[in-house]
């Protein structure tokens, strides 16, 4: 990896005074293949067989279907990624994620491609150094069904 590039620290978040409600963030896309789910199981240390063991999942039918599904926390991660990729979990100019509140509405079947996108829903004016925005994020599966929604709070620089 070349680290000699003298580019300044990044990413950079927009300033609170400059952003408008309704501003859209770039969509993100992730295919929930079984290997991707397997990797998530290891990375999160959540080895629940409903995500990784096809034979057990077929017998147990936890979600009423005979197959493995993606982790709810993986869906939450995809939802949060919309904001963290756009502005950074922390930004070089003082921004940071403050919360992620997610609701899951449909299990994600293996092989689904999840697309998540969001927009600035509300600006919270609390004074210098304390302003933040609420980003509404929604994720859909390949058939267009909503699989999860989230409100993401983000501290923006003034």
């Amino acid at each position: 990896m070349n680290i000699s590039n003298p580019s300044p620290p990044h990413p950079v978040a927009p300033r609170f005074g400059e952003i408008e409600t309704g501003t859209e963030l770039p969509a993100i896309e992730l295919c929930y293949s079984q290997p991707v789910i397997d990797r998530y199981a290891l990375a999160s240390l959540d080895m629940n067989p409903v995500h990784t063991n096809e034979e057990w999942a077929a017998r147990a039918q936890v979600f009423g279907m005979p197959e493995t599904v993606g982790h709810g926390m993986m869906t939450m991660s995809s939802l949060a990624s919309v904001v963290s990729r756009a502005w950074g979990p922390v930004s070089a100019n003082g921004g940071s994620i403050r919360f992620v509140n997610a609701t899951f509405t449909k299990p994600v079947r293996v092989g689904e491609t999840v697309v998540a996108k969001g927009y600035v829903k509300k600006k919270h004016h609390h004074g210098e150094g304390r302003n933040w925005v609420e980003v509404k994020v929604e994720a859909r599966d390949t058939s267009g069904d909503v699989i999860g929604v989230a409100d993401v709070g983000y501290n923006l620089p003034d």
Partner: peptide
């Protein structure tokens, strides 16, 4: 595992120079 490929997320050496925290960016 969340699909991040940016070196700020996956390369500690690069992140040490370029990230706001001097460490890897951390998925929320």
């Amino acid at each position: 595992a969340c699909g991040e490929t940016d070196p700020l997320y996956v390369d500690p050496e690069y992140a040490g120079v370029h990230s706001p925290t001097g460490e890897l960016l951390q998925h929320p």
